[in-house]
Design a protein around this nucleic acid. Structure first.
Lengths: 115, 115
DNA sequence: GTATTATATATCATATAATGATATATATTG
DNA sequence: CAATATATATCATTATATGATATATAATAC
């Protein structure tokens, strides 16, 4: 019964990390690349931003760590995969509603105050 | 020729302070009340948030201080009025575009990943 | 007449979070 | 074999919000 609204506002990196996990589980580095692509190259998360955010989101239980059995071998350190929790998805939805409201209010005021 | 995009993302308080000034000049305390009303009571800026943000926005030249001649007397310390600069308005517009993009991306992903 | 409230600006200490820099480790590609 | 892409992690610094506290004044309530 934790209220999703109590987690808002999300910062831009946090929003995109959660959004990156919306379609399904990913490991950290995959989130990094996905966010870059998703934002049209505008957002380049540093690894420090990514992994401190992941730590925080785990603490807050907005994402969860998935136990990996038998990873296929590949480059780099062993992967750790993460997924949105139900709470995380509800927070992301609530944030989207908040952002939509801000856009609506801004459009009204920028119109009335415009040149 | 400072690029408005270089000021983004705005934090929620900063966004609302600029938005409050979009229709015209206001003094600090009026911004405080306006933001509260504008956000449906959700956002209650503390005075420390407000005045530190005002100082920063002045430094960045997103707002400007207006010289007050002959204030009508009223309660409280003398008022100081502020207005958006052209740059400030362009930053607010750019932020609105950014937010709209985030909403669009979120709606797509929340739909495709939804239950 | 005085106490409270609303108005109005300002600073301080603390907490949160992003960021650049740096480090470690490994498979693939040139 | 060197460089690059993959992959996770920590540290110091910077930016910003926030609650607490302070000062000052006019209007309102009692």
């Amino acid at each position: 019964m934790t209220d999703p609204l109590s987690y808002l506002p999300l910062t831009e990196p946090t929003f995109y990390i959660l959004l990156s996990l919306a379609p399904g589980k990913k490991h950290g580095y995959a989130i990094l690349k996905d966010v870059r692509q998703l934002s049209g190259g505008r957002i380049r998360l540093s690894t420090s931003t990514l992994y401190t955010a992941i730590g925080r989101l785990l603490d807050q239980e907005l994402i969860e760590r998935l136990d990996e059995e038998a990873q296929e071998p590949g480059p780099g350190l062993p992967r750790k995969s993460y997924a949105l929790t139900d709470l995380g998805r509800r927070v992301l939805e609530a944030e989207t509603v908040r952002l939509q409201g801000m856009v609506r209010e801004a459009r009204l005021r920028l119109r009335e105050g415009g040149a």
